[in-house]
Every structure is written in C-alpha cells, then in structure tokens.
Design a binder for these strands. Structure first.
Lengths: 326, 326
DNA sequence: TTGTATGCGTTATCAA
DNA sequence: TTGATAACGCATACAA
C-alpha cells in the first residue's frame, strides 16, 4: 500500500501538496496537479481513511441496529438506507441486536461511528443516547414519520362496509408499548362506531413478538378466548400469515369466515393463498429517508421532516362478513 | 471523549502503562492496575479503535458483498456470519452490489478492511483479488463447501421412485455458469438413468435471475416450449415459488400434474400451498463457517475445511407421476 | 515494573 | 502557490 509520502516523493512535492490536490482543498498549479495525479496513479495510491478519520474525527461509518432481519420489511428498509448511505460515501455496518446484549453497542463509540439508525423496537434507547452519537429511531415521532392513519382508516372502513363489527387485533408488542399503529387502529374503530373490545386485543410477551410463529400463537390465544369476531388486523404481515395458517389448521376459512389484513405489504402477500390484504408503507423509501435525516444531523444540515403516506391494499384475504361466530 | 493521556494523568502514570493494563500486554503491579482501571471508569474512557487501527494495521472490520438481500437465504447466511464476527470482535459492513458499480469496492481498501465475504455470484472476483485483502466466496471450491450431492440425489431418486421420468430444471444462472447444483443435478439424473434433455433446462439472462419473478418467467418459457415434463427442480426456493405461481395461473395443478422442488429451505416453504419440497443447506451455519474461515485467514490461523451436508425435505409439492403431458 | 520516545498516515496551521 | 511541522490517539521498542 503506497502512502502519501511516497506519492509526494515521486511527484517531487511535499505531502501537504499531495493533500491539496487530492482533496481539492487548495489552489495548486496545473503543473503540480498533473504530476501528483500521475504519481498517485503510478503507485496505485489509495488514501488511508483510518488515518484521515483520526484527525478529522469523521469516520463516514454508520450502523444500523436490527433485531429481526427475517422480517422482509426490515430488509427492505435496510436496503433503502444502505443505498442512500453509499451514495453519500458512508459505509454501513449491521448490528444484530439479540439476547447477547449491548456490549456491541458500547463498541460503536470506540469505533468513532458517525451515527446510528435504530431499526427496531428499542428498549434501551437510553443506552444509545448516552453514547452521544447522532441517532434516529423508527419508533418515536421523529424527522421522518410514517403516517399509518389513512391506510388503517381505509382498512377498518372497508371491513365496516363489508359488515364486520367485531374486529380483533394481534398486537405483537407488549401491552402498553406505544405504537402508532395500535393507537390508530383503536381510533379508527371508534371513528367507525365499532365496539372496541379489549378482549380482542392479543398482546405479545417479548418486546417484539412479531414473527410468523408469533402470529400463529396469538391467533391460538384469540380463538381460545371463545369471543366473537369476524375480522383480524395483525400488526404486520408475518403475524397475519401466521394467523391465517392457524385459522386454516383449525378448519376456519379465510376469508369466508374470518377476514384478515396485515401491514408492510411484503412480497409474500401475493404469493400465499388467499393473497393477503395489507398496508403499503414504502419501506425502502422510509429507510432511505431515515438515513437522509441521520446524515443531515451528522453534517449539521437542516432536514425538512417528511411524512410518508400509506396505502391500504385490498387482496383476497378480506370478504363480506358472514356473521359467523367464533 | 476521554483520551488515554487523561486516564494516565488521573491515575498518575504514563500512557504506556495505561496501555499495558488495558490491553493486558505487560505485567503491572496490582497497585497501578486498580488505579488505572478506576481512572478509566471515572472518565468513562473508551479506547479509540481508529487510532489503534492506524498503528496496528488491523481494523477488525470486514465486509459482506450481497446483491440479493430479498432472498431470505442470503439474509440467514448474513446473520450467521455476523454473529460469528461479532463474537470475535469484528464489525461487519454490508455492501449491496447492484448496477451502481464497483467504486464502493475500491473504497474497502482505503478503509483498511481486514477481509471480505462475497455472498453472491460474482462476476468481477478479479477486481476483489486485486485489492489484496483476504476474502472468501461462496461460489468456488473453498475452505467451506456445501455438499449438495446427497440432497439432490435424494430428490431425484424420490422423483424417480414416484414415476417421474422427464425432469425440467430452472437454472436461474446464465448458461455455462459453473454451479455445483447444476452439474450435480445432471449427474443425479444420469445416475438414475433418466433421460437428460437440454431443452428442459431453462437458463437465466443476467448473472443471477433467481427471484420469484424469474422463476415465474422461466416456467413461462418452459411451458412455451411444449416439451413433455412432469417434475421441476428450481435452483432455489424463490424460483420454485414463482414457478408454482405460474403453473397455478395456467391452471396446472401442483403436485397433481407437476411436481416441484427447490433449494434453500426458506421459511416460506411451509407457508405456501402446497408446501414446497426443498433442500436444507443450513444457511446460518454456512454463513458462520464462511466467517470463521475468513477470520482464520486474516489471523493466520489454520482452518480445517468443512463440508456442510444437505438434506432433502419432502413436502406437499411432490407427488406420484400421473403421466400427464405438457 | 514503569516511563520515554517514535511512528502509524492523515489533516491543518502557519510560514515562506 | 507551496512546504515544514505539529497534532490526532494509540502501540511498542527501548531505557530506566
């Protein structure tokens, strides 16, 4: 690996001059410029970003914290974020946060990371704040918000129109977790004059019980209650898929007897049978905007808050209410 | 951010001594040890890994190159790799290689990365070799191999037993791409005395046409040929899922008229209907072992080559041949 | 056992 | 327009 000094020597100039031309940081004469560039090319010189980081205190390195990469939603979000970062010259590292713990998180400050995106329901956001590193999350109201209200209202309205009166909800998260979707779904139901029954809300045990198996489990619990319902909203599509599987296993027909819809509009929705109604949230765009806002904060640029609109996508999993009781 | 010097001052020792105790690199007296540790804790000191990298020339930073994160197979592989890396103190960055190009790859040198995992069908491996950075790929024979032969033999044998004679193959990759699975499937067919018909092999156009839509497209092409076949092997499950969708759309019943099996054993296999027969490849373990072998190379440790065994998983998508013709 | 001093490859400050 | 040279925070050879 050629160093800057070698380039300087070959070009017959000082290291400072090499910096000037390579970083376009000061005016240099045409003569030296070409000499330096030629020398750099001849030596196949690549600047050492580690050394640069040491003095500039900027690493152009950010991290994304995820805990459920098996959920395609987060993968798409990640793709969107990575793309934006790459375009801006940042490299993004993936931190899979699971049981193992937060020692990995403390490392992020040692590594001089410029910023962090928290792409998960985060319990210990406090730990991250203490790092004094710029970060953005997906949970709270922030610079980039997904506005679920439209789509949720639409979904509930659609169910109402089809005659559904008792709608259950597979929440995925623990009770009392503040999640926009969950408060909005309640509001949407009230708005449509539907009876809101706490017993039809199934909560998760862990911070994020939102996988297929969790949907299956939640539906099992719901059925066990023996309460009447004719439609189900699941926090996300994976849960909805699990729930449908459970209903099938119990010999209950979807959508003939129970209508189901989820959220995220993942690719699988159109593959399964019945195809799954869902809410499209532009996960890729969301991820991209999250990164944009993070980079803006890092670079002390202003960032205009963005509100991402959602859309209800009706597919086969929803049908007219048959007034059947479970 | 407290620096090592501040810790030294507070503890009343030299910076070298601080290094000695923090890195356990030299014997120090109990006295100084506690003094240093206390000072470090008091100042909430975190070593600057960037500075360390500059002198040690080790970044504990590796990259994984992927081009299709929408394929759960790669996600699982990534998870396995990341877990191993994290445990060894490495941070892993994700490089999404798409059309945009390879400028990102040159950056990896500048960032002093310790190693690279190429988790994709790679065209420009040459570019990466030129970086003179340790790397491992998934394509070629290497330190860690997935032995598909068992599972493929099993799969073909199973089909043979069920009366299938003409088996098509959706290859996903471009013709002449050397892929273990594709050469092995041919061998398996010959071994079972099945007629091998080139016309029943559908190739991809791009370097990796292996998504759901590609499977759909490949099956469309296959049907258009009008050649007889009663079973299909798809390079991976996504393609198989696309193929089944296509067959359904054409009113062809799976598995009653056509049997299908894929490869990777992704979660969706058990969700769709019919459930998809597949080959389990322990993607998580594979990813982990890839990382192990990379780290071994980086740290100049010996690495015992590993051969990952595969298993054929029979599910609903395969049934007795009805001798129907398409 | 502990301290001093040098270098890692940059950027940046100040002179020239 | 260019060049010395001092940081940046750490590791380490060598001295003490």
């Amino acid at each position: 690996m050629a160093t800057r000094k070698e380039v300087a020597d070959l070009a017959g100039v000082s290291v400072a001059t090499v910096s000037y031309v390579l970083n376009h940081t000061k005016k240099v004469s045409q003569q030296v410029e070409v000499k330096v560039l030629e020398a750099a090319k001849a030596l196949d010189y690549h600047p050492n970003l580690v050394a640069r980081s040491l003095v500039t205190k900027k690493s152009f390195h950010v991290a994304i914290l995820v805990n459920d990469l098996q959920n395609p939603y987060y993968v798409t979000l990640l793709e969107g974020a990575q793309e934006v970062a790459a375009k801006a010259g940042y490299i993004v590292s993936l931190i899979l946060v699971n049981s193992s713990g937060s020692d990995q998180i403390m490392e992020l400050v040692s590594r001089q990371l410029d910023g962090i995106i928290i792409a998960m329901q985060c319990e210990n956001e406090e730990d991250i704040r203490k790092l004094h590193i710029p970060y953005v999350g997906i949970a709270e109201k922030a610079a980039v918000n997904v506005d679920y209200s439209n789509a949720l209202n639409e979904g509930i309205h659609e169910l109402k129109k089809l005659g559904h009166k008792r709608i259950a909800c597979l929440c995925g998260l623990q009770k009392n977790t503040r999640d926009t979707r969950l408060s909005l779904i309640v509001r949407a139901m009230k708005k449509e004059g539907l009876t809101y029954d706490e017993d039809l809300f199934i909560w998760g045990n862990e911070s994020e019980d939102t996988r297929i198996a969790d949907g299956y489990e939640a539906m099992t619990q719901l059925l066990k209650k023996g309460k009447e319902f004719t439609a189900v909203y699941a926090l996300n599509d994976l849960m909805a898929i699990g729930a449908i599987k459970c209903l099938k296993d119990q010999g209950i027909k979807v959508p003939d007897e129970i209508s189901v819809f989820g959220c995220d509009n993942i690719e699988t929705d159109e593959i399964i049978s019945p195809t799954l109604s869902s809410i499209d949230v532009s996960a890729r765009y969301f991820g991209g905007q999250l990164m944009e806002s993070l980079l803006a904060e890092i670079e002390h640029r202003p960032f205009e808050p963005v509100f991402i609109q959602t859309k209800f996508i009706r597919r086969e999993s929803i049908a007219r209410c048959k007034e059947s009781v479970y």
